[in-house]
Nucleic acid binder design. Structure first.
Length: 858
DNA sequence: ACCTATCTGATGGCTG
DNA sequence: CAGCCATCAGAT
C-alpha cells in the first residue's frame, strides 16, 4: 500500500492511498493508541486490571510482548505518565512500557505493509492585505494565490472584490485546483501561508478537508539541506528573494511587497502587477528545486525512513523513529517510551578530538587522510547499541567489545539493533552507488540512484546524533560518548604510528588528520598499512568481532594557512583523491569569516581577496599583502560604501522574552545583545520576529556612544572606525598573521580611530586652536566621531559662548572648502545627521551636505 | 525537537 | 585605559 498522506485525531484516522493507476483512495480508520508490555511483566492481576477498562479496545500477544490498544490517548497517557498527584499505576508496580508515545499515524505506517508514495507536488505563494501587521496575519484578507508545479501546471487566483464572499469563492477555487496535488510547498509556509490559508478557509466557512495535503515548508527544507554553502553570502539572508539571487542569479522584482493592499485597491494594471509578483515568487520555488533537487532528496529520505514528506518529516528524530520502529517491529523488538524531560536535568558527554594546529606560516605539501564514515563504522565494529551495552560490565566468559576510553562493554554475541540498521543502510547505499555507476551520468535513472545513495548516507550519519539527543527515543549518552571517544582514540593511535615513521601530524579534527613530512607514495603506503594491519589489530584487541574502520587518503594541500586557531584555515590542493589540481581549482576554506553569514560583506570580500592571493596567486611577499590592506583600509575609512557592504546580520535563536536579562553590580539592567535590542523594537512595530529571523543592523557612532540601529530603511551614517577595527580588519589580520607570523600586522592598521591627546595637543590631521577670547576647534569632517564631539562639548561647557567650529573639506576636484560656525549650545550632535545643529543657516547646511558628498579625503 | 568542539564579538567587572 | 577574565550568544 502506497501512502500519500495520513492524519489522526482522537476520534479518527484518515489515510490517503495512492492506487497503482495513480488515483487516490481515502480510508477512514479508528486511531490506535497502544503500548507494549513485556509478557513476563504482565501478571494475571495486571492483565485483569488492564482488561477491565472499557477504554481498552484490544490486547494481543506479539512475540515477547503484549500490545494493549486504547480508544483514546488520554487513557493511555494516564497509565503511562499518571496524573498530577497520582503516580502511573504501571510505574508503581515497576513495569516498563514500550512505545507508549507512538502516535496512531506512525503506528499505522510501522505496522502495516506501507510504502511512502511519491506525492504530486506543487508550490504555492499568497499575497495578503499589507495593512494588517504580521502578528495578526490570520485577519488579513488574501488578495491573490498562485500555485504551480514542476511540469508547467499553473493556477492563479485574484480577489475580484473586497468581500468575504469573494474571498470564500477564491479559496474554494484554489482548493479545487489543489485536488490535482498531494504535497504543497511554500517559503516560510509553516509560519505564514499555511496558517493564513487555514484561518481564512475556516473563517469563511469554505468546506474542504485540508488535512488531505502534505505541507512542507520550503524554507525549512532549504535550511536543512543547504549544508555545503560556498560562502557566507548564501547564509546572510533567508528571504526568498535573497536566496534566489544567490542560487538562480535572479534579481528583485520592482514591486513593493509592503504595498499589496494599495496595489490591489488601485485595480487594473496595478492589481495585475501584484499577481505577476505573486507568480514570480512561485516560479522561484520551482526553479530553486530544479537547481538544488533538495525536495527530491528529501523524498528519498522519507521513503527510506517511512516518514511522510512534510515539515515534521524533516526532523532527524522522526526519521530515525520511522526507520527503527519498523525494523524493530519486523524483529519482534520494541523500544522504550520517550520520556518527558524536565528542564535543567540535561546531561553532557564528551565529544570529538581536535588537534591544535602545530605549525605557522604558509605550510607546504600537507597530506590529509580521514576515516570513512567514522561514527557509523565505530558503532558497527563495536556492535554499539542501547540494548547491547552491558550496564553491569562483562560477565564471566561473555564475549564483549570494549570501548577503549569509556570502558563500556558491548555484547558481541548477537547483533545490536542499531548495528542491524546501520548495516542495512550502508549496504543499501552501496547498492545504489553501484546502480548509479551503471547509468549514464545526468540521466533520470542516474539522478534517482544518486539521490537514493545520498539518502542512505544521510540517514546512517544522523543516527549517532539522534542517539546523543536527549529528546530522542534512542538516547543513550554512554553509547554516544563511547562513539566519540573511540574516535579520539583511533585518531591518537594513528598520530602515534605516523610519528614512528617520521611523519608529523600538524592538525586533525574529529575524523581527519593533516600530515607533513612524507611523500605521496609514503603516505599512501602508511594509509594502506593502517587499514591492513593497525585497525584490524586494534579492533581485535578490544574484542570487536568485525572491523569496519577505514582510513582514506583524501587529498594533499599544496599550501595551507591556519588563521591562528583550530577549525579555521584555507589552502589550495595539490590533488584531490588523486586528481591533480588545476589553476582554477577552488581553494578550500573552513571556518573563516568568508564562510559566515554573520560577518559583514566587506569582511568577507576582503578576506576572500587575501585568500585568493595566498592560495591561487601563491604570493609570498608580505609587502604585496600590505598594499592590498592599505587600499581596503582607505576605502573603508573614506570611500563611498554601499549599505549592503556594512550591514550586520544575526539570527534570533529563541523567543525574545527568553533572553537573560542580566543585572549590573549597581542593580541596573545590563545591555542585551545589539540584535536582540533591535529585534524587540521591530516586533513592537509590528514586524515579523521569531526564532530564526535574521536581524540586519548597522553600527553608528552616536553622540551617546556606539550603538546599533536597524538596517531597515536606514540611510544615515555609520561608524567607519568601528567597522574597520572590529569587523573588517581582524578576520584578515588573523589570516595574515597565520601566513606571515613574523610581520607586524598591527601597527598602523589595527587601531585607526583618532584620539585627542589629553594635554590638548592635536593629533595629526587635526588642529585644536585655543584663542584667548574665543576657542576654535578645527577638525576633519570624517573625524567627527564621538571623541571629537565630546571634546568640543567639554570645551563648550567650560567656556560658554566662546567656542567656534571650523570645518574644512576637500572635494573630489581638490577644492578646499572651509567655514567657521559658532558652536553655541550643542544639541546632540552628529556630523551628518545633526549638521543643522552645527551651522548657522539652512543655506550653510545645504552647502555642507553637498560638500560632504563630494569628499574623497579630509 | 541530531551531537560536541571551537571560535569570535558584545558586554561587564576587575586591576594596575 | 589597556589587559584580562567571565558570560552569553551565534555560527561553523
Amino acid at each position: 500500500m502506497r501512502i500519500v498522506q495520513a492524519t489522526a485525531d482522537d476520534r479518527e484516522m484518515n489515510v490517503w492511498e495512492q492506487l497503482p493507476d495513480g488515483r487516490i483512495q481515502h480510508h477512514r480508520h479508528a486511531p490506535e493508541f497502544s503500548f507494549f508490555l513485556r509478557k513476563k511483566d504482565v501478571t494475571e492481576e495486571l492483565r485483569r486490571f488492564l482488561t477491565r477498562s472499557s477504554l481498552l479496545t484490544a490486547h494481543r500477544e506479539e512475540g515477547d510482548f503484549i500490545r494493549f490498544s486504547w480508544k483514546e490517548d488520554a487513557a493511555r497517557k494516564l497509565l503511562i505518565y499518571g496524573r498530577r498527584g497520582v503516580e502511573s499505576p504501571l510505574k508503581e508496580v515497576g513495569v516498563e512500557i514500550f512505545e507508549g508515545d507512538v502516535r496512531p499515524v506512525r503506528r499505522f505506517l510501522v505496522d502495516k505493509d506501507c510504502e511512502i508514495a511519491r506525492p504530486r507536488r506543487c508550490y504555492v505563494d499568497i499575497e495578503t492585505d499589507s495593512r494588517v501587521p504580521f502578528s495578526r496575519k490570520e485577519e488579513a484578507r488574501i488578495l491573490s494565490i498562485v500555485a504551480k508545479d514542476d511540469v508547467g501546471g499553473r493556477h492563479r487566483f485574484l480577489l475580484p472584490e473586497d468581500s468575504n464572499r469573494a474571498e470564500a469563492d477564491m479559496l474554494a477555487q484554489y482548493w479545487e485546483a489543489l485536488g490535482a496535488y498531494d504535497q504543497v510547498l511554500a517559503w516560510n509556509g509553516d509560519r505564514f501561508d499555511f496558517p493564513v490559508l487555514k484561518a481564512r478557509t475556516e473563517g469563511n466557512r469554505v468546506r474542504v478537508q485540508m488535512a488531505r495535503w502534505l505541507q512542507l515548508d520550503h524554507l525549512a527544507l532549504f535550511k536543512r539541506m543547504n549544508t555545503a554553502a560556498e560562502s557566507g553570502d548564501e547564509k546572510q539572508s533567508m528571504a526568498l528573494q535573497a536566496i534566489a539571487m544567490q542560487f538562480l542569479g535572479e534579481g528583485k522584482d520592482d514591486f513593493d511587497a509592503s504595498k499589496t493592499w494599495e496595489a490591489w485597491e488601485a485595480g487594473g494594471e496595478s492589481r495585475a502587477r501584484m499577481l505577476e509578483y505573486n507568480e514570480k515568487d512561485v516560479d522561484l520555488l520551482v526553479k530553486l528545486e530544479a537547481k538544488t533537487g533538495f525536495c527530491d532528496l528529501f523524498q528519498a529520505i522519507a521513503e527510506v525512513c517511512r516518514v511522510l514528506p512534510d515539515s515534521i518529516g524533516l526532523l532527524p528524530t522522526q526519521q530515525m523513529d520511522g526507520f527503527m520502529l519498523r525494523l524493530g517491529a519486523q524483529r519482534g523488538l520494541r523500544f522504550r517510551t520517550k520520556i518527558r524531560r524536565e528542564e535543567g536535568d540535561e546531561e553532557t558527554f564528551e565529544g570529538a578530538f581536535v588537534l591544535e594546529p602545530k605549525e605557522k606560516g604558509i605550510i607546504k605539501n600537507v597530506h590529509v587522510c580521514d576515516f570513512a564514515g567514522m561514527y557509523p563504522s565505530i558503532m558497527l565494529s563495536w556492535n554499539m547499541s542501547p540494548e547491547t551495552r552491558l550496564k553491569m560490565g562483562a560477565g564471566k566468559g561473555q564475549k564483549v567489545a570494549q570501548a577503549p576510553v569509556t570502558r563500556e562493554c558491548f555484547d558481541v554475541e548477537g547483533e545490536g539493533i542499531l548495528t542491524v540498521a546501520l548495516r542495512q543502510l550502508i549496504s543499501m547505499r552501496k547498492e545504489w552507488t553501484s546502480k548509479k555507476t551503471k547509468e549514464p551520468p545526468g540521466t533520470p535513472a542516474w539522478k534517482d540512484a544518486d539521490r537514493k545513495s545520498t539518502a542512505y548516507k544521510v540517514v546512517a550519519n544522523s543516527f549517532y546524533g539522534v542517539v546523543g539527543s536527549q529528546s530522542s527515543r534512542f538516547y543513550d549518552s554512554s553509547v554516544a560518548e563511547s562513539v566519540t571517544t573511540t574516535g579520539r582514540w583511533l585518531i591518537q593511535r594513528t598520530i602515534q604510528e605516523a610519528a614512528k615513521r617520521g611523519m608529523i601530524a600538524i592538525y586533525g579534527d574529529t575524523d581527519s588528520l593533516f600530515v607533513r613530512g612524507c611523500s605521496r607514495e609514503e603516505f599512501r603506503e602508511f594509509v594502506a598499512w593502517t587499514n591492513e594491519e593497525l585497525y584490524p589489530k586494534l579492533a581485535q584487541e578490544q574484542g570487536c568481532v568485525e572491523n569496519h574502520i577505514k582510513l582514506e587518503y583524501e587529498k594533499e594541500f599544496e599550501r595551507l594557512i591556519f588563521a591562528g586557531a583550530k577549525k579555521r584555515y584555507c589552502g589550495s590542493y595539490a590533488h584531490f583523491k588523486g586528481a591533480e589540481a588545476t589553476a582554477d581549482s577552488k581553494p578550500e576554506i573552513k571556518g573563516l569569516e568568508y564562510k559566515r553569514g554573520d560577518s559583514v560583506v566587506l569582511a568577507r570580500r576582503f578576506q576572500g581577496r587575501i585568500i585568493d592571493i595566498l592560495c591561487k596567486q601563491k604570493e609570498e611577499r608580505p609587502s604585496v599583502f600590505r598594499e592590498v590592506v592599505e587600499q581596503v583600509k582607505s576605502r573603508v575609512l573614506q570611500g563611498n560604501l554601499e549599505r549592503f557592504e556594512y550591514v550586520i546580520s544575526k539570527s534570533v535563536s529563541k523567543p525574545l522574552n527568553e533572553y537573560v536579562q542580566k543585572k549590573k553590580l549597581d542593580g541596573s539592567p545590563a545591555a542585551q545583545p545589539p540584535h536582540i535590542v533591535i529585534a524587540k523594537q521591530l516586533k513592537a512595530d509590528g514586524h515579523e520576529v521569531h526564532e530564526g529571523t535574521k536581524i540586519e543592523y548597522v553600527v553608528v557612532d552616536g553622540e551617546d556612544g556606539i550603538k546599533a540601529v536597524s538596517a531597515i530603511g536606514y540611510e544615515g551614517d555609520f561608524d567607519r572606525y568601528y567597522l574597520w577595527e572590529n569587523l573588517v580588519y581582524p578576520p584578515t589580520q588573523r589570516l595574515l598573521e597565520g601566513a606571515f607570523p613574523d610581520y607586524d600586522w598591527t601597527v598602523g592598521l589595527a587601531s585607526v580611530r583618532p584620539k585627542f591627546s589629553k594635554r590638548g595637543k592635536p593629533l595629526k590631521g587635526q588642529a585644536l586652536l585655543l584663542g584667548s577670547e574665543e576657542y576654535v576647534v578645527e577638525v576633519d569632517a570624517f573625524e567627527m566621531g564621538r571623541g571629537v564631539i565630546e571634546q568640543i562639548r567639554t570645551l563648550a561647557t567650560k567656556h560658554p559662548g566662546q567656542v567656534r567650529l571650523v570645518i574644512q573639506l576637500t572635494t573630489e576636484t581638490g577644492e578646499r572648502i572651509r567655514t567657521e560656525t559658532p558652536y553655541g549650545v550643542l544639541p546632540n550632535v552628529k556630523f551628518r545627521d545633526d549638521l543643522r545643529g552645527l551651522v548657522a543657516s539652512a543655506a550653510e547646511y545645504r552647502f555642507f551636505e553637498e560638500a560632504y558628498k563630494g569628499c574623497v579625503s579630509s
